[in-house]
Nucleic acid binder design. Structure first.
Lengths: 333, 333
DNA sequence: ATGAAAGCGCTAACAT
DNA sequence: ATGTTAGCGCTTTCAT
């Protein structure tokens, strides 16, 4: 079965200390010895146990990533860049989908701690703050992605949600829309997007009303349902700002089934600029998050925190970018 | 910092053996003792180290999952169900995207072994068979997903690719298409789909030619490029069977830019039935893989292999299902 | 019913 | 230059 350091030592005729040294490329020794050990490692197909070494104080070289749902394209896309960057740095990542469920979050966070992950990236939004605080107290580097720091005093990386909401809404307003609904998520980030939505209206001296603000959880089905709710409320708005692409797609699909023409009868702006935004017809006008940059950055940050703890914490906001495609147009009079 | 079993033992006034027993719910002891220990575990917020226990022979409660690319919706969707099912069974999963790169596969497989994963699910297609053999030899349960067993003698779970290819093609043929191209991947599964494509033709006494078989790697961009190549070759076929939805979407997009009407000028069938198939316009006719069932099944299998090794190995084929949407129509005369 | 102690595979000080 | 040894946090057998 799996050879251990002892097997290698015996086969190479040296002590385990020597083997350990060649594994870690530390210490000094005769070149011939090093070669001999390397050879026998290869011959035995020896693979040092990361668990054993982690137990002696070294890291586990694994990162934990908490997302709401890995099957949501936004998260799978960002997970991919996180994974790539992590591997470039010799780390792998355990992905957990919380389904925006506080119990699951708790369970997964504890699990990740028991697995001794070297750091945790939290891109999931429902929080049991106490749990996360525990993590921080226990000195496990933790950074928030797509989220504010929830009062934890950790660094957070996200897009400028306020600005994104502002730009999405301003675009609609500039096209003449005066009756704009917003479908947000429950997450904090959505709150900022709502504020941006409000700000854009206010700036133009436009009224807003609670009636135009809807909330749901990200999924195509929920997007459809939201549109149904909006329509039930009475007058159909001319524009909808959906706080993510998944919801926007749902709105598009439902609108079509209702016989609403897009963008003639209804303009839609999404958020995220995932792969979905390019596959709808018309293409989805949306607010792009710099997914790759954010993913890379978050692992850079967490790795530097792992290397030398107590880095200064920051709140990093990336610039959102309005991508105009076909789901928005000048409002019909 | 993190409390250990010693801290708990000391605080509770018992030995670590006793604490271990309550952690694992083994052995007998006075109820009061058990309670006392439980209480102090709670008070100290103690979380047993999985690494330490793994080192003593228990499992790591971790599964490794190798996929070509987690940002491909098919894989992120199946990863989600795998993750869910795994967690239901107290296991978490480390996901690695190989990018269909043999070197990466090798690197990740070794990594996963060093991390002592209890089992590995391989849904990635380019194989360094030797590496995988090593895994099997070392007695780490391994099951192939979406792939045949590559001569490893392990159980494999996939859709019936041959049948899927046959049905996709037959559908096109039944709509009157006589000039059908196929865009496949390099994977083994694609080979089966090609055979299905061939079979469907043969059954109808229709000619086929190598000229109509194209290969690429799954991505929208490669789908677009493939269509360009097909067009360059001369006569544009009336039907295209793309071996996955991503490629199909690329074909649709490129076709539109070329001014080709879908399905009037070109009928398209995809494969997978991912979220993308519902967002295109028209909706994508595609071959559905039972993603949830396959995902659940694969973890059930691997878990039973982990529990009692040497399960009988099988080749499990799920039934594909043709989902007719809007990208296919009777051929124009 | 409870505890002492050996051992899992490795690292890192300390000897030689 | 190389080896000895004491942990790391836990499980498990064997005593008590």
């Amino acid at each position: 079965m799996k050879p251990t350091i002892y097997d290698v030592a015996k086969a190479a005729g040296v002590s385990i200390a020597t083997v350990s040294k060649v594994i870690n490329n530390t210490g000094k020794m005769r070149d011939t010895t090093r070669e001999k050990v390397k050879d026998t490692m290869k011959k035995l197909n020896y693979q040092p146990s990361l668990m054993a070494s982690a137990l002696t104080g070294k890291g586990t070289e694994t990162l934990g990533l908490l997302v709401p749902d890995i099957s949501n394209p936004f998260f799978s896309q960002i997970a991919k860049t996180i994974e790539d960057r992590a591997h470039e740095n010799g780390m792998s990542v355990i992905i957990c989908s919380t389904d925006e469920n506080t119990d699951k979050e708790k369970k997964y966070v504890e699990l990740l701690q028991r697995k001794h992950v070297d750091g945790m990236i939290v891109a999931s939004s429902y929080h049991n703050i106490e749990i996360l605080k525990e993590v921080v107290n226990r000195n496990t580097p933790l950074v928030m992605l797509t989220q504010d720091d929830a009062g934890l005093g950790v660094t957070s990386i996200s897009v400028d949600d306020f600005k994104g909401g502002y730009e999405a809404t301003s675009h609609l307003i500039s096209e003449g829309h005066r009756d704009i609904a917003i479908i947000a998520e429950y997450a904090k980030s959505s709150k900022q997007r709502i504020y941006g939505y409000l700000e854009a209206h206010e700036e133009q001296g436009l009224e807003t009303s609670e009636d135009h603000i809807f909330r749901t959880i990200a999924s195509i089905e929920n997007g459809r349902e939201s549109l149904r709710k909006i329509v039930q409320k009475g007058k159909v708005p001319t524009g909808i700002f959906a706080c993510n692409d998944l919801i926007a797609v749902g709105v598009i699909q439902e609108a079509k089934e209702m016989g609403l023409k897009i963008p003639e009868d209804l303009s839609i702006v999404g958020f995220d600029n995932t792969i979905l935004a390019t596959t709808t017809v018309p293409g989805l006008t949306t607010i792009a998050q710099p997914i790759t940059e954010m993913g890379n950055r978050v692992v850079d940050v967490i790795i530097s925190e792992i290397k030398n703890k107590n880095q200064t914490k920051e709140r990093i906001l990336f610039k959102p970018q309005l991508i105009i495609r076909g789901t928005t147009a000048v409002v019909k009079i």
